[in-house]
Design a protein around this nucleic acid. Structure first.
Lengths: 178, 178
DNA sequence: CGACACATGTAACACGTTACATGATTTG
DNA sequence: CAAATCATGTAACGTGTTACATGTGTCG
């Protein structure tokens, strides 16, 4: 439920056709989230099926229209969007995060193994973080869209959080482990 | 690709049957990640299809066996697991995160709207964070498994990161926005 | 003309998830 | 005995994702 709501929210600005949505979506996400056009159409089909968007043929006052369709958001769609803006990702059950799962499974397997996994993850994550930091400082406010900068920033902050968590895990393993 | 590798890694400790895996999985994740039994079987089917586990009939020296099957990890399975332990979640393209997407879409829509969304998200996230913190301090080292504690800790750290990011977003919106 | 962007769509598959059906075994 | 737990499985559906087929319009 991400692409779905994403497209829906783009349609709130006005009717669009499929290809346009792909373009706008990629712009809005700073070019870091490529979106396969095919997925746009399948998602739009599902949105139509659910009554959240309506499809129109050729645009009213337009001369150019090969087989073009125009999608517009419906009342029901706007309602659903409204809920989406309000909603906060539920944390019960907690999101299945790959790093978390990996560490937990490693612990279940054997503490020594877990320590190796944690160390390894931390090393690579740290490298990634430093790369992202360089990327961040390289992109001055001028070039690079606001979106691109925010995404980079988010990744940096997330990576920092993961590193901090890995430290906690290691502390727990070392303390209780002996 | 989370349940899949999770089950595989549980099988590294020795052959198990489906129901057992459900139980162990839930224990290993501190009881916070419920796993529908049905999914265990479908996932095991897929693992078998891919040659990562092999299925045996009744356990060799066991008298009890109604229709029980025993699943064991194969060489190929161990190889894949090895890669999994080493692997670090790719960040290109960056993971499609709901919060990120929501904020980016809000920005594309209209900056004032984006500010409202950010504020709203921060408020609720902060409440969640505080609840988690209380939960964390309530669970002393005695009760609550290591796994459960680590999950709570992870959620706290993640929430803090998200809040920090939301602050950055707001700063950017306020600055450039006028 | 040829390449490229625009534009639409289908088919196939992946994983995750839930609901449901079925039966054996254990335990109060 | 009745209820809970153990145990296996199927059917159906949801989203995400890729690969492929098809055609138009534009620009060098």
């Amino acid at each position: 439920m991400a692409v779905r709501e994403g497209l829906l929210s783009l349609l709130e600005d006005g009717p669009r056709h499929g290809y346009q949505l792909k373009t706008v979506f990629e712009q809005a996400t700073g070019g870091v989230w490529p979106l396969n056009v095919g997925q746009v159409y399948t998602t739009l089909d599902r949105l139509e099926r659910d009554g959240l968007v309506s499809v129109g043929g050729a645009p009213p006052g337009s001369a150019l229209a090969p087989g073009q369709k125009i999608y517009a958001i419906t009342i029901a769609g706007k309602d659903e969007l409204g809920s989406w803006w309000e909603a906060v990702p539920a944390d019960e059950p907690p999101p299945r995060d790959e790093l978390m799962l990996k560490v937990l499974m490693a612990i279940e397997h054997d503490r020594a193994h877990a320590l190796r996994v944690v160390t390894r993850q931390r090393t690579v994550l740290l490298q990634l973080l430093q790369a992202k930091r360089r990327e961040r400082s390289a992109v001055t406010d001028v070039d690079g869209s606001l979106a691109a900068r925010l995404v980079t920033e988010a990744l940096v902050v997330r990576a920092e959080a993961d590193l901090r968590w890995l430290d906690t895990v290691e502390a727990n393993l070392s303390a209780k482990g002996k």
